[in-house]
Simulated scan of single mutants.
Amino acid sequence: MTDHRCFAPRGLEAFAAAYPGGPAAVRHRLHDHPLFAQEALAQLAERLPESHVEHSFGNLAVDQDPAGVRRAAMPVGEIVRTIDDNGCWMVLKKVDVDPAYAALIDACLGELAPVTEPRTGACRRREAFIFLSSPNSVTPFHMDPEHNILLQIAGTKTMRVYPAGDLSIVPAEVHEAFHRGGRHRNMRHDPAFDAKAQDHRLAPGDAVYVPVKAPHWVQNGPTRSVSFSITWRSDESDGEARLHRVNQRLRRVGWTPAAPGENRAADAAKVTAHRVAKSATATARRLLGRERERSAY
């Protein structure tokens, strides 16, 4: 009987040992999947909403100034079809709006569930991304708010991953601004950070788990690269985000809040207070909306 599992046998052992806080090398079985054929990806780019497709030239610095990023003047389908030599980098965002890719991410997360659910609860806000890049492209230094496994489909790349929560790499104020929104994802990189990093060299069939907000950057190899990223949120990622939002508000009124993890009782109180406040605000808005509807008659 054909084995249709997403991950290779014993491919999740390192993931199970590291989750949720540490990076881990993983093995997968999707590198020959027809959904990742070049023409299939070109057609996907053409039918996705414009807001789900981001692209630029890939000759970027590790700590690239967003103002210096340039885009190619080509249709998105053409960028995919000529990615081998057009010098571009592209991400297809939230491809799970397409039923075929949604089924694939669900299958992958189903295999991860025996590890993830007992530790961080149900996987929420499941999303899938596909990265395409020309030879030698760079994805600059940044961090993401989700748990993430990046599966290498075609070509090679090196992902350099830094410890999550190290305030000497990403200061508390940067975390807080990140959760406030409105800023570009690219961050300042100091080569001194590299002493704390792990390099994950990826070829087809390789994958890497990247913990929530573990900073990283990516160097593509000498041929075009295709990678599939499956992401999810959890109770842990939700709590971490709420902590930074509360700390940002405290800092704004003159307090110097403890960093997440320094005082677990205070952390729990902040998360609970934020949830209660957001719930009360949402309830008040619903009630106000109903009153407005009544007054309109």
Rank of each mutant, 00 (worst) to 15 (best):
V91C: 14
R29Q: 11
S295N: 15
E39V: 01
A16W: 03
P114S: 03
P260D: 05
R285N: 13
S229L: 07
F57Y: 15
S133Q: 08
A172M: 14
E146N: 14
L151W: 03
H274K: 14
A266L: 12
G239F: 00
D190A: 03
A197R: 05
L48I: 06
A203Y: 01
D238K: 06
H4S: 09
K270D: 14
A214T: 02
P163W: 01
V210K: 01
A172Q: 15
G87K: 01
K157D: 02
G205H: 07
P222L: 01
P204G: 04
R188E: 13
A277I: 11
A18W: 00
A8Y: 03
T256V: 08
R252Q: 13
R125M: 12
P23N: 08
R249N: 05
C88I: 05
P99M: 06
R119T: 05
R81A: 09
F131A: 11
S237I: 09
F129G: 03
A203F: 01
H147N: 14
V69S: 11
Q64L: 10
T2K: 12
R81C: 02
I83K: 02
L288Y: 12
R119W: 13
E146L: 13
A192Y: 05
H200W: 11
D3T: 00
A241R: 10
E111Y: 03
S225D: 05
D235W: 12
A24Q: 00
G68N: 13
N186K: 06
A61P: 08
A128L: 10
L287A: 08
A282P: 07
A40V: 04
Q64H: 10
H200G: 01
A8S: 15
T139L: 09
H33N: 12
R242V: 07
L288D: 09
A73T: 00
P9F: 06
V210W: 01
H28A: 02
D85R: 12
V170M: 10
E111Q: 14
E39K: 03
R125L: 11
L132M: 02
L243E: 09
A269L: 08
K93G: 09
R275Q: 11
Q38S: 03
N148V: 14
M1N: 15
E111N: 05
V170A: 02
H179C: 07
D106M: 00
Q248F: 02
A25R: 04
A107K: 14
N148D: 11
S234P: 09
A24W: 00
R180Q: 13
V53Y: 05
